[in-house]
Amino acid sequence: MIQMLITGLICGALLGFVMQRGRFCLTGGFRDMFIAKDNRMFYALLIAICVQSIGVFTLIQLGIIDFTAGNFAWLGVIFGSFVFGIGIVLAGGCATGTWYRAGEGLLGSWIALFAYMVMAAVMKTGVLAPLNTEISSITLPENSIAATFGISNWIFIIALLLITGGLVYRELRKPKIAIPSLKPKRTGLSHLLFEKRWHPFVTAILVGLIALLAWPLSAATGRMFGLGITTPSANILQYLVIGDAAFINWGVFLVLGIFIGSFIAAKGSKEFRFRMPDKKTGINSFIGGLLMGFGASLAGGCSIGNGLVMTSMMTWQGWIGLLFIILGTWTAAYFVYVRPQKKRASQSTTSQQAV
């Protein structure tokens, strides 16, 4: 228990700190791909996937960890990921983003986090557990992409590395927009950690390394997986309600560590403050949290569990799940942001013509 507590909290705190300071928000990144045609955060995610994938398959070859892709619950992954993508737009952050923004004092994220935990628990051990089990039982026999084609995982890893390298190279060659910078108020390490703007690609490398670190640390406690957010979040509520210590695992301390790390980063950078959402935002956050918990449970993972971890393991679950999370995000972004803007612009034009 002590080992689980210490390593889980440390790994989670590192992740929360890095994500908060680097503003590693996949919700905003997926949304900006559609609205602003800005792909930088998606490229950053690819970098993190590459770093983790190279590291994890190296550990597997060394016999340090073990991994079996299992079956591919295609229906749950497709439908659940799409619903999850809609939910993260309404909630204002994905599962991990909700944890670290809660650590910043954003009360809307607290609302979304509570709804997310409740729905995830309901889906896993509550009244919707039979539905979850039924949909998840609809599977295809092979989840590993490499096994499907009968070739080595390293072929896909090298291909992903080359594609990602090309995209990043092209992005870095784009002309930089000059942004006036304020005179630093700090020096040395304090300036670097709490004041300097972190580049998303540097942040992605750190996220990938932390995701890699999670595998051996988690495996040492008997949990053979990397980063995971949905099940541990549900486990916290299940433990508080039922009191069964079996719900306490390495993942629980990981998500609690994300909150702690984000709080430390926000306090150190003077970005922590309690912010109360308006009525509409609060309602959207709650609904978004419910959709997140429902979708992630069906899909067997969230934007981290599927979008970062299972993609790095070269599974159909990971890559198809990531695709439908993005499609769900774009769908919600259209109705939440694009369509209202078009409506306001149309009304404004009509008013001017009337004058």
Rank of each mutant, 00 (worst) to 15 (best):
S297C: 10
A120Q: 09
I258P: 00
K174F: 05
N132L: 11
S181E: 15
T311G: 00
K267A: 07
T281A: 14
K176R: 12
V118C: 02
G301V: 10
I163M: 09
L161A: 15
Q52C: 11
G257V: 03
Q238M: 14
L323T: 14
W330M: 13
G150R: 09
T230N: 13
I111F: 07
S269D: 09
S348H: 05
S144K: 08
Q353N: 10
V122N: 07
C11Y: 00
G165C: 11
H191I: 04
A159E: 02
V252Y: 03
Q352W: 12
T58L: 13
M314R: 03
F286E: 00
I88T: 07
L160T: 06
I304A: 00
S109V: 02
G208W: 07
G188L: 07
R31K: 14
M1S: 12
M123N: 10
Y100Q: 08
L172H: 12
K270A: 15
D32C: 04
I111E: 00
F30T: 05
F30K: 01
I248G: 01
K343C: 00
V309W: 02
G126N: 07
L128Q: 03
C50R: 01
A296W: 01
F294S: 03
G97Y: 01
G166L: 11
G282H: 00
F201D: 03
L193I: 11
E104P: 00
P175Q: 09
I54Y: 08
A48V: 03
G8H: 12
G301T: 12
I65V: 15
S152I: 07
F79Y: 04
I47R: 04
M119S: 08
D38L: 10
Q61P: 04
L14D: 03
M41P: 00
F335R: 06
W154A: 06
F30M: 13
S285Y: 02
F247E: 05
Q352D: 11
G165H: 13
K183Q: 11
F72N: 03
K343T: 10
N284M: 12
G97M: 07
W215Y: 15
D38K: 14
M4Y: 02
P141V: 05
D38W: 11
L322E: 09
W198P: 09
K280P: 00
A146Q: 10
E195H: 06
G12L: 09
F24M: 06
T187M: 10
Q61V: 01
T27M: 15
L213S: 10
A159Q: 01
L227E: 04
R273W: 07
L308A: 14
I258H: 02
G307E: 04
L254E: 07
A48Y: 04
T331H: 00
A354M: 13
G282T: 02
I242D: 12
F324V: 06
S81I: 13
L62H: 03
A129W: 07
M310Y: 08
S233A: 15
Q317T: 13
V338D: 06
G251F: 02
E171D: 15
S109Q: 10
A204Q: 06
F294H: 04
A115V: 02
I78A: 07
I325V: 14
